[in-house]
């Protein structure tokens, strides 16, 4: 463990908590893409199957369980409890266009052709594009609530911090995982224009408005 990965995990946890609180407190999931939340639930489910086979540490196990439970709770809140507030008119991204290529790529490019490893690889590829429906929804509505932009900033920062973690591990531990690194770079790049808008607008108290 290193400070970059710890800050990354905490940023990730913060994002998930911000989203759950936003939906629970406002009793509304307006402005949130349910499709992205479904993709995140799939990401954690396929990535953390090793909970059944490998014990890394108490921290690792607890965080994995929190991420899985929180992602399913979010999907439940959006599609069941606060279903009436779900913006299905704007949340129209075809997630099969993300799921199928990620699965095909995982079958072609992986470290080891076993069920667990291919599913882990699939979850890495899927996570790198899982935010697209959310960014697509924000671009369609042309704006995002401040709380939603804080959620996105924390979520985008988590993988950006993981990039620093991988640099650290390469130089200090002589360890690197190319699949996760490439996917992590793609994932962070997708947030770049949002990061720019967040830093130039939201941090100055303005609402996140996308240029029409």
């Amino acid at each position: 463990m290193n400070i970059f990965r710890l800050l990354g995990d905490l940023s990730h946890l913060l994002a998930i908590i911000i989203l759950l609180l936003k939906i629970w407190k406002t009793r509304s999931c307006a402005g949130i893409s349910g499709k992205s939340q479904i993709l995140f639930a799939i990401v954690y489910t396929t990535r953390y199957l090793d909970l059944l086979t490998t014990y890394i540490s108490a921290y690792n196990t607890v965080m994995k369980l929190v991420f899985i439970v929180a992602s399913y709770a979010t999907v439940y809140l959006m599609y069941v409890k606060f279903k009436a507030t779900y913006d299905h008119n704007h949340d129209t991204f075809r997630i099969e266009f993300l799921l199928v290529p990620a699965l095909i790529l995982a079958l072609l490019i992986n470290h080891e052709f076993t069920v667990l490893e291919v599913l882990w690889t699939f979850s890495i590829y899927l996570e790198s594009v899982a935010i697209l429906p959310q960014l697509f929804l924000v671009s369609k509505t042309g704006e995002a609530e401040s709380i939603t932009s804080h959620y996105l900033f924390a979520l985008g920062s988590y993988r950006a911090l993981y990039l620093l973690n991988w640099v650290y591990r390469y130089f200090v531990e002589d360890h690197y995982e190319l699949i996760a690194i490439v996917a992590g770079v793609v994932q962070t790049i997708l947030y770049c224009d949002f990061f720019y808008l967040y830093i130039t607008k939201v941090l100055k108290g303005k609402k996140l408005q996308l240029p029409a």
């Binding site: 995990d9 490998t54 690792n60 080891e112 973690n165 995982e177």
Partner: peptide, 10 residues
């Protein structure tokens, strides 16, 4: 290939 180490990251 080297045995795939356990993925110790979240």
């Amino acid at each position: 290939a080297a045995p795939v180490e356990d993925h110790d990251e979240l």
